[in-house]
């Protein structure tokens, strides 16, 4: 009975946590992107691997630099840099010159993300901001064919769909968000005129719904706000570019809505359940 009294650390509850983590989210999304890269190689878009490689190396390099400058290491540890590189390579034309790609990655990872405070702190979607920036600087280079524009391919569409199913299976986000985006886009296109290239259209809509809207940092912090955000973004992206729905239009639409996010959060903030003062008590006290 005369055991020594044990000593333990004192911390606040809860003492157990869910298994969710940022690393799990990011790597899960990368797994969902994998079928798309495999299909791109098999269907003759192998040049995308070159862009992917440049993106990966430069994104990791810029994150490392930012980590040294701002004393932050999260982005490298939790796979955020790799995810950003993979997504950005899909937004670039396949035959894009290396220096343009590196400039794009710099503006996305370093300027639009790390200078705004890094993970969780940026206001505008960094990848789309960089994409719009390059579009304005190098209009000729950026209008060259890319995987998600041009003729379209049924296998690419299928790979995006598979990625979407993997993404929904992981239950990372709210399943209504991509569904609402896709439904709104399809209804808009059905009402406002036919699409020249339905395969491209479907690919771009699915890609946006599952991968570009999957970054919660730039979305409103309420469910109702997110739904309104997605609805407006879908309506805007259908009308913002001259040739109907396109990745360029999506970029502008999401960036515009990002600017409205703080207002959406305040307008649609959840109504707390109010207890009468005399009965107010926390669980612990």
């Amino acid at each position: 009975m005369a055991e020594a009294t044990l000593s333990y650390k004192r911390v606040l509850p809860p003492h157990i946590h869910s298994t969710a983590s940022l690393a799990k989210r990011n790597w899960g999304q990368l797994i969902a992107l994998a079928p798309l890269f495999v299909t791109a190689c098999l269907t003759g878009h192998a040049e995308i691997l070159r862009v992917l490689l440049i993106c990966l190396v430069s994104a990791v390099a810029f994150e490392f630099l930012a980590g040294k400058l701002f004393h932050k290491k999260e982005s490298l540890r939790n796979g955020e840099a790799v995810l950003a590189a993979a997504l950005f390579s899909l937004l670039m034309p396949s035959r894009c010159p290396s220096e343009v790609v590196i400039l794009g990655v710099f503006s996305a990872v370093f300027a639009a993300k790390e200078l705004f405070g890094g993970t969780g702190n940026y206001l505008l979607h960094p990848l789309l901001l960089a994409r719009v920036f390059l579009q304005l600087c190098f209009p000729k280079v950026m209008s060259e064919p890319m995987l998600l524009a041009g003729d379209g391919n049924i296998w690419v569409l299928a790979a995006i769909g598979l990625g979407g199913i993997i993404f929904l299976k992981q239950k990372q986000g709210y399943w209504k968000t991509p569904i609402l985006f896709m439904a709104t886009c399809f209804i808009c296109e059905a009402l406002l005129g036919g699409q020249a290239m339905p395969l491209t259209f479907f690919s771009a809509v699915l890609f946006t719904a599952f991968f570009l809207l999957a970054d919660p940092v730039t979305l409103p912090l309420t469910r109702r706000g997110t739904m309104l955000f997605v609805l407006c973004a879908a309506l805007l992206s259908s009308r913002l570019s001259s040739e109907g729905f396109s990745i360029q239009g999506v970029g502008y639409a999401i960036l515009l809505m990002n600017l409205l996010t703080p207002w959406l959060e305040v307008w649609l903030k959840p109504t707390p359940y109010k207890t009468k003062n005399q009965f107010k008590a926390t669980y612990l006290s």
Partner: peptide, 25 residues
């Protein structure tokens, strides 16, 4: 069971808003 975890920045994923029993943010 009681692993300690390193805190990372908020990514505004909405999970806490969804699971708050008194509908706070």
């Amino acid at each position: 069971v009681v692993k300690d975890a390193i805190a990372e920045p908020c990514i505004r994923c909405n999970l806490c808003v969804d699971h708050c029993p008194v509908s706070l943010s």
